[in-house]
C-alpha cells in the first residue's frame, strides 16, 4: 500500500476541525446564547438611554440609533473575533488541548483554522442580528450604495481582530490571567473609540491613543457605511489601511510567539 494514497490532506483536516468546533460550540448552549444576547443587550440599553437624542453627522442630523447600530455591530465583531478567540485559546491551552493536538499529525494551522472559522461564523450571525434589530426596532437600515464598503470593512475587521486575538493569547501566560488581560486591552479602547459613546471634544492625547489602535478605525469605517447622507461608495482607505497594518502585526506576533502550553 502506497503511503501517499492513504494520506489525509491537510485541507480535509482543517474542514473537519471546523465541523468539530461547530459541534462543541453549540453543545454549551448557555455560553452560546450569551454570546448572542450580550451585544444585543448593549444595543437595547444604549438605545434606551440615548436613542432619541439628535446627533449631527456629516451631511445632516440623525437620532443616536443611527450611531449605535453600526457601533454595536463593530462591538459584536470585536467580541466574537478578539475576545472570544483569545479567551478560547487560553482556556484550551490550559486544559492541555493544544499540547495534545501538537502530539498528533494535525497541523497547528488547521487547528486554528477551525477556531477562527467558528469565530467568523458567530460574528456573521451577530452582524445579521444587529442589522435585523436595527431595521426592525430602530428604523436604521444600511444604505445600498455603501454595501461593498460595509462588507470589505467587516471582512478586514474580522481578520484583524482574529489575528489580534491570537496574538494576545500568545502573550497571556495562563488562563487565570486571561480575562484580566483580554478585557483590559479592549474595554478602555471601546470607550474612546466611538463604540459606547461618541467622542467629541476629547483631550488630544485620548484622540491620539484612539487613532493608534484599530478599534476606532473599524468603528468609524462602520459609521460611514451607515451614514444615510453618504452619497459615494463609503470607502475609508485610511481606516482600512490602519486596520490592515494591525492585521499584519497580529499575524506576525501570533506566528512568532504562539504557545501550546500555559506558562506559570
Amino acid at each position: 500500500m502506497s503511503n501517499e494514497c492513504i494520506q489525509v490532506s491537510a485541507f480535509t483536516l482543517a474542514l473537519r476541525q471546523v465541523r468539530y468546533e461547530n459541534t462543541t460550540f453549540w453543545r454549551n448552549p448557555v455560553a452560546a446564547i450569551f454570546t448572542f444576547v450580550f451585544p444585543l443587550m448593549f444595543l437595547v440599553i444604549f438605545n434606551l438611554i440615548f436613542g432619541n437624542t439628535e446627533m449631527a453627522l456629516p451631511g445632516g442630523t440623525v437620532t443616536t440609533s443611527t450611531f449605535y447600530v453600526p457601533a454595536i455591530t463593530a462591538l459584536s465583531v470585536i467580541g466574537a473575533c478578539y475576545t472570544n478567540v483569545a479567551m478560547g485559546v487560553c482556556f484550551s491551552r490550559e486544559r492541555g488541548v493544544f499540547k495534545r493536538v501538537r502530539g498528533t499529525p494535525l497541523p497547528t494551522w488547521a487547528l486554528l483554522f477551525g477556531r477562527l472559522a467558528i469565530a467568523i461564523v458567530v460574528a456573521a450571525i451577530l452582524v445579521v442580528i444587529m442589522l435585523g434589530a436595527g431595521a426592525l426596532f430602530y428604523g436604521v437600515t444600511l444604505p445600498t450604495n455603501t454595501l461593498p464598503a460595509f462588507l470589505v470593512t467587516l471582512v478586514l475587521g474580522a481578520a484583524t481582530f482574529c489575528a489580534l486575538g491570537l496574538a494576545v493569547a500568545s502573550i497571556v501566560p495562563n488562563a487565570d490571567a486571561a480575562p484580566a488581560i483580554v478585557n483590559v486591552s479592549i474595554l478602555p479602547l471601546m470607550f474612546i473609540s466611538d463604540i459606547f459613546i461618541r467622542m467629541e471634544d476629547s483631550p488630544a492625547w485620548v484622540t491620539i491613543v484612539a487613532d493608534i489602535f484599530p478599534v476606532r478605525h473599524f468603528a468609524q469605517a462602520m459609521h460611514t457605511s451607515f451614514n444615510p447622507f453618504e452619497t459615494g461608495a463609503g470607502f475609508e482607505p485610511l481606516h482600512l489601511l490602519v486596520m490592515a497594518a494591525w492585521l499584519v502585526v497580529g499575524v506576525v506576533v501570533a506566528v512568532r510567539f504562539f504557545r501550546w502550553e500555559p506558562r506559570r
Binding site: N3, V8, T23, T24, R27, G96, V97, T104, P105
Partner: peptide, 25 residues
Amino acid sequence: LQSTGVDPYLNVQETINLFRGYYPD
C-alpha cells in the same frame, strides 16, 4: 500525557473518532 486534553463537550466515541481522523491508517 500526564494530563487530559480533550474537549469536555464531546462524547467518548466522537472524541476517539476526531483523533482517528488525524491519521492515515
